[in-house]
Amino acid sequence: MHIIATFEYSTSLELALSELENTGIPKKKITAFPLDKRVEPGKLFDSMHQSDGISLFDLAAVFGAIFMLLGTIYGYVLKLGPILWGLFGLIFGLLLGFLIDYTIYKRKLGKKIKQNKKEKISEVVIIIECKDHELEKTEKILWSHAALGLCKVSTPRNSGSSFRI
C-alpha cells in the first residue's frame, strides 16, 4: 500500500513526518521529493520577476519615497500642508510604481502571475509505504497537517487505485 501526498514547504510538513514516525512507520518507508522551484542559479537573473512578487514592490517603494518627498516639500506652498501632500505623494508613488512593474511583468509572463497568486503550489511530494491497517491513521495525519492532495495506491488484489485530490 502506498500513499502519495503533496505539501507546501512548511513546518507542518515536518510535524507530519515526525508524527508518522512516532506511530511506527520507519523513516526508510517514507520518501520525500522536494520539487525545485523556479529560483535556480542558472535562471537567477530572470527569476526575480517570478512568483515571489518581490520586484512588484521594488519600483513601488522607490516611487513611493520620491513622491512622498516631493509631496512633503511642495506641501509647504500648497493649500493642505506637507503632511497630507506627503501622504498623497506616497499613495500616488506606490500605485504608479506598482502599476508600471505590473504591466511590464504581465506583458512578459502573460497569465503566469495570475495563476501563481491564486493557487497553492505543490512543492514537496511524499510517498509513504504502509500496511493496510495503518492506512486510515496515516491518511488522517497527512490531512490534519495541511496536505494539499493525497492519492492512495492499493495492492494488486484490490485491482486499481483510488484517487482523492
Binding site: H2, K27, I30, T31, A32, V124, P156
Partner: peptide, 24 residues
C-alpha cells in the same frame, strides 16, 4: 533548508520506491 533536509533524510532509496509503485 527544508528541501536539503528532506533530500538527506527521506530519500534512502527513491528510485526503488518509484519502481515498487510501478509494479502495482
Amino acid at each position: 533548508e527544508q528541501a536539503n533536509y528532506l533530500q538527506k533524510f527521506y530519500q534512502c532509496n527513491p528510485s526503488e520506491t518509484l519502481t515498487n509503485l510501478n509494479e502495482f
